[in-house]
């Protein structure tokens, strides 16, 4: 039995659509709903392979305190790295960890785990 042309078309359409969706979802999509800081403090939860929130807005020129709670015992999540600030901070498990950042210049600062699997962006503007 040969595969019907319509099936071939369908499979190809689904495959190509999936590829376009991947490109859009992971690279072209521009985040809109960032979480703002409250009085210079933001809580970040590290669990299930993600930082929550993963997109944070903070005003420029002001220090920021990150209160990070790492719930994932996997060594993957052990360090929080903030690019551009030279920060590589070990996170304790199941304990709130305070990280005080200095006043920052406007810009985007990526933060991620050692293996780049947990990812987030700190937007300072």
């Amino acid at each position: 039995m040969t595969t019907l042309p319509v099936t071939t078309l369908l499979v190809n359409a689904v495959g190509l659509t999936a590829m376009m969706m991947i490109v859009w979802w992971f690279w072209l999509w521009k985040p809109r709903n960032a979480v703002g800081t409250k009085d210079g403090v933001i809580d970040i939860r590290v669990a299930n392979g993600t930082y929550t929130p993963a997109l944070i807005d903070s005003p420029a020129g002001q220090p920021l305190t990150l209160r990070v709670l790492r719930e994932d015992a996997s060594p993957c999540a052990e360090y929080l790295i903030i690019e551009g600030l030279g920060i590589s901070e070990p996170l304790p498990v199941n304990r709130l960890h305070m990280l005080m950042l200095p006043a920052m210049a406007a810009g985007e600062y990526r933060f991620h785990c050692q293996m780049n699997m947990y990812q987030g962006i700190l937007r300072v503007r």
């Binding site: 992971f26 985040p31 392979g49 993600t50 929550t52 993963a54 997109l55 699997m117 947990y118 990812q119």
Partner: peptide, 11 residues
């Protein structure tokens, strides 16, 4: 969870 955050990882 990663997909919701527009991330992809080993999971």
């Amino acid at each position: 969870k990663a997909a919701v955050h527009h991330n992809a990882n080993m999971d």
